[in-house]
Design a protein around this nucleic acid. Structure first.
Length: 258
DNA sequence: TAGGCCATCTGGTCCT
DNA sequence: AGGACCAGATGGCCTA
C-alpha cells in the first residue's frame, strides 16, 4: 500500500504522524501528485491510481476514456474524502496524546476503537474522582453550605486548596491519585522507576488498570472499574499509583451508567 | 494462515 | 451544484 509505505513501518493507523499543514508530507507518492494537481491534467497519475487504487480500496477501473470529466470529479471527491479521513485521524492522534496510555516510538498505538473506549472510561474516571473530591471537600468544611459561605468570604475556589492544610486528609490522597492518573503530558511528577522498568505503561496507565492487555480491558467497559485497583505485572510502590478504596465504588457505579 | 486494523475508493444521502 | 458525512467493499500490513 502506498500510504503504508509512506508512513513507515510503525503500523500506525495513519500517516498523520508525519503530517503537517503543508499537506504534502504524508502524500509522498502518486496520490500526493494527484492531490496537488487535482485541478490540472492529472490523467496519468489519476489513471494509475484508479487502476490499482494505490494498493487499497476497490479495484474498479474506468476503462472508458471518454469519462475524463467524471474521472476528474471522482478524483476530487476522493482527495476530499482522503483529507477528511486524515483530519479525523489527526483528531484521533490528538486524543491519544492526552490519554493515560504509554506513548513512544516503541509502543504500539492504540487502535481507534480502543482509543474511543479508553477515552470514555477515562472521562468517567475523572468525573468520578471529581465527584469524590467535591464530597471530600464538603466533609472537610462540614457540608456544602459551609463551602458556599466560606468561598464567598474567602476566594478559595480550587478544591486542592484545603489539602494544603490537611496533607494527611483523604482528600490529599485523592488528589494524589488524581495526579497519578493524569496523562503523561500533564503529569506533575515523573513516572516512578518501578513502573517504568516493569512496563511500557506509565503509572497513570497502571492506575487505570491498563497494563499488558489493553484490548482485554477495553472490550468490556466495566472491566476498568472492576480492576483498576489491581496492578498485575506492575509492582509499583509509588504512592501515586495507589488509588483510594472509595474511588472504586464511585467508578463502579459510574461505569454502570450508559 | 487467520484475524485485526487500517487506508482508500466509491456510491448514496443530507445539507447549504 | 457542491461539499460533508457515512457505510460498504477491497486489499495491504502486521501479529499471534
Amino acid at each position: 500500500m502506498d500510504s503504508d509505505s509512506g508512513s513507515g513501518c510503525s503500523r500506525s493507523s495513519s500517516p498523520d504522524l508525519v503530517v503537517d499543514d503543508s499537506a504534502g508530507s504524508f502524500f509522498s507518492n502518486k496520490i500526493f501528485q494527484t492531490y496537488c494537481h487535482e485541478n490540472r491534467a492529472d490523467d496519468e497519475a489519476g489513471q494509475g491510481r484508479t487502476e490499482r487504487c494505490s494498493g487499497g480500496g476497490k479495484t474498479k477501473s474506468r476503462s472508458d476514456p471518454d469519462k475524463n470529466e467524471g474521472q476528474d470529479l471522482r478524483l476530487k471527491v476522493n482527495s476530499r474524502e482522503r483529507k477528511r479521513m486524515h483530519d479525523l485521524n489527526q483528531a484521533m492522534d490528538s486524543l491519544r496524546e492526552v490519554m493515560p496510555y504509554a506513548q513512544g516510538p516503541s509502543v504500539r498505538k492504540l487502535s481507534k476503537i480502543s482509543t474511543l473506549m479508553l477515552a470514555r472510561n477515562y472521562i468517567l474516571m475523572l468525573s468520578g474522582s471529581l465527584d469524590e473530591m467535591k464530597k471530600l471537600v464538603g466533609d472537610v468544611y462540614g457540608g456544602g453550605a459551609a463551602i458556599q459561605s466560606r468561598t464567598a468570604a474567602h476566594p478559595v475556589i480550587t478544591p486542592a486548596a484545603p489539602a494544603a492544610h490537611h496533607p494527611l486528609h483523604p482528600l490529599a490522597q485523592s488528589l494524589h491519585s488524581l495526579v497519578g492518573s493524569t496523562p503523561p503530558g500533564l503529569q506533575h511528577h515523573s513516572p516512578c522507576p518501578a513502573a517504568a522498568s516493569a512496563m511500557h505503561s506509565p503509572p497513570s496507565a497502571g492506575f487505570l488498570g491498563f497494563h499488558a492487555s489493553v484490548q482485554g480491558l477495553l472490550k468490556d467497559p466495566l472491566h476498568l472499574a472492576s480492576t483498576y485497583r489491581h496492578f498485575p505485572g506492575m509492582p509499583c510502590p509509588c504512592s501515586l499509583c495507589q488509588p483510594l478504596p472509595t474511588t472504586t465504588s464511585t467508578l463502579h457505579s459510574l461505569s454502570m451508567i450508559k
